[in-house]
């Protein structure tokens, strides 16, 4: 008698939990239906906004967001991407989208735009988890530090001087954030070196770049 009652109450408990699970699934599926598009749109908008932050919007006329190749660079997370900006078919800039894991508290994702003469156009940090108030000054909204890369190349300064000045390099150190600054400088240098090795083939279609 009592075991029958406990079996019934167990069935009831299972039914209640199942119903709750189904209701939760239904609510989330409905919400996903409505939020899916805005979230995807926002991601795309953010990616494009980041790209146009390193390149003036009228300096290229191709579909930058879809014109990219995937590559691997030593010392940086794989795969990295190169977005290729062109104006009337002519190369304008290679935009490296890379992630370094040598930040002070995790990985730092940045964009570096390099012109066909291997000179940096601009560098911007996309994502990071550096210390608020210290390492987060790599963001352009917080300080001008990241702007010092514009116009630099592997000859300016010479590549052994690509380090924060606190480590005998030629770049400003962010005070109290030498590791953060060093990680960004190193990542940008690796992009330039990769660009130098890849040469003209940066601009060709993925199927032509066999050595990737």
């Amino acid at each position: 008698m009592s075991s029958e009652r406990s079996a019934r109450s167990r069935h009831r408990a299972i039914l209640v939990l199942t119903g709750l699970g189904l209701a939760a699934a239904a609510i989330l599926a409905t919400l996903d239906h409505f939020t899916h598009e805005p979230i995807a749109l926002e991601r795309e908008r953010r990616a494009l906004a980041a790209l146009t932050a390193v390149l003036p919007a009228d300096s290229f006329d191709n579909e930058l967001v879809t014109d990219f190749i995937e590559i691997g660079i030593d010392g940086l997370a794989m795969p990295a991407r190169i977005y290729r900006a062109r104006l009337a078919g002519q190369p304008v800039a290679a935009v490296y989208d890379v992630t370094t894991d040598r930040g002070y508290s995790g990985s730092i994702r940045l964009l570096a735009a390099i012109d066909p003469d291997a000179t940096l156009i601009a560098v911007r940090v996309l994502e990071h988890r550096e210390t608020p108030g210290l390492g987060d000054r790599i963001e352009v909204e917080r300080s001008n530090w990241i702007r010092q890369f514009s116009g630099r190349s592997l000859d300016d300064p010479p590549r052994q001087r690509w380090a924060p000045d606190r480590r005998d390099g030629d770049f400003d150190t962010l005070s109290n954030a030498t590791i953060t600054a060093g990680a960004v400088i190193e990542a940008v240098r690796r992009n330039l070196e990769h660009f130098e090795v890849l040469g003209e083939s940066v601009w060709s279609d993925p199927e032509d770049t066999e050595h990737d």
């Binding site: 408990a13 939990l17 709750l20 939760a24 919400l31 996903d32 939020t35 979230i39 926002e42």
Partner: peptide, 26 residues
């Protein structure tokens, strides 16, 4: 019932948090 209380709370709370998170993201 007491025996399914905690799992039920967890489902309810997780669903609510996901709703808030998706709303913020969108």
């Amino acid at each position: 019932r007491p025996e399914i209380r905690i799992p039920a709370f967890v489902i309810i709370i997780a669903t609510t948090v996901t709703v808030v998170d998706l709303t913020l993201q969108a």
